[in-house]
Amino acid sequence: MQGGGTGSVSVGVDLSGLVGRSLTIAVQEIARALAPEGIDADRVVVAINEAMTEVLVDEEIFDPSTLSADQIVEVLVDYLARILFHQVTEDAGSAWNRSPSEARTIEAENELFDLIKIAMDRQLGPKLANGVGRMSKLDVERAQLNAMQEVWREWETFE
C-alpha cells in the first residue's frame, strides 16, 4: 500500500478503502486481515495493533503513502518483538510467580520486552536495510529464532 497498491497482493484483501480513515480503524482492519486463522489470531491482532499504534503514534489519519521505510521496519520489529515476548513469557511459565512483588514482576516484564526488542532489532536491522520485501518467511523465522536464543542468553544473566 505504501507504493500505491491495494494490499491485495500481500494479504489477499483490498485495503485501499482504509486510506483516509482514522488510524484506529485502519489498524484494526489491517490486523484482522493479516491475522492467521486459528488459535494465534487474537495474539497476532493485538500485537499488530500495539506495534502500529506505538510506531505511528503521531498519525491520526491512515495514509500509507506517507509511511517511511524506517517506520515500516520499526512496525515489523515491534510486532515481532511483541510476538516473541508472549512466547518467552509463556515458556517461562510459573517463573513469574517467584517475583518478590507485583511491582518487580511488572519491572521485569518491561525489562524483558526491551531486551527482546533490542534483540529483534539486532537480528532484523541488517536484513531489513535493503527493504522489507526482500526478506522471505524463512529469513524472518530464522531472525526470530536467533533473537530468542539471544534473549535467553541475556536473560539468564539478569537478577
Rank of each mutant, 00 (worst) to 15 (best):
A35N: 08
L124I: 09
I118F: 01
R104G: 02
S94H: 05
W96M: 15
S65V: 07
E150Y: 01
D121R: 13
Q87G: 08
L115Q: 06
V140A: 12
R142F: 10
L128G: 02
E156I: 04
L67C: 11
M148L: 09
A35P: 07
G20Y: 09
W155P: 00
E102Q: 15
H86W: 10
K137W: 05
P36K: 05
A108K: 02
R153P: 00
I106F: 12
L56S: 05
Q144H: 02
F85D: 10
V132H: 03
R142Q: 11
A47Y: 06
Q71I: 03
P100N: 06
L145T: 09
E90G: 12
Q149S: 05
D42R: 14
V27E: 00
E59H: 11
A147K: 02
S136Y: 12
I39A: 06
R122E: 12
I30L: 08
L124K: 02
A147W: 01
L84D: 01
V73W: 03
F85A: 13
E59M: 05
A35L: 06
A95L: 12
R21W: 06
A69W: 03
V151P: 03
I30V: 14
A47R: 08
V46Q: 10
E37W: 06
E37T: 06
D58T: 14
E156G: 03
R32F: 11
E90A: 12
A92L: 15
L128D: 01
T89Y: 10
S68E: 10
Q149C: 01
I118Y: 03
L34C: 13
E102G: 15
A26P: 02
D114Y: 00
V55H: 00
Q71W: 03
Q87E: 15
R82C: 06
V77M: 04
D63C: 04
Q87D: 15
V44A: 07
E74W: 01
D63T: 06
W152H: 09
H86I: 06
A41F: 08
E37V: 11
A41K: 12
F85H: 13
I48Q: 03
N146F: 03
L80P: 00
P64F: 07
G131E: 09
D78T: 14
K127S: 03
T53G: 09
T24K: 15
A143D: 00
D114V: 05
I48L: 11
M120F: 07
T105M: 07
V75T: 04
E150M: 14
P64V: 04
G93C: 02
E54H: 07
Q71M: 13
E111R: 11
N97R: 14
R82P: 00
L115I: 07
E54F: 06
D63Y: 04
A81S: 14
I25M: 12
R43A: 12
E109N: 07
L80N: 00
L56M: 15
L18T: 06
E37Q: 13
Q28D: 13
A92M: 15
A129K: 12
E156K: 12
A51M: 03
I72K: 07
A119T: 00
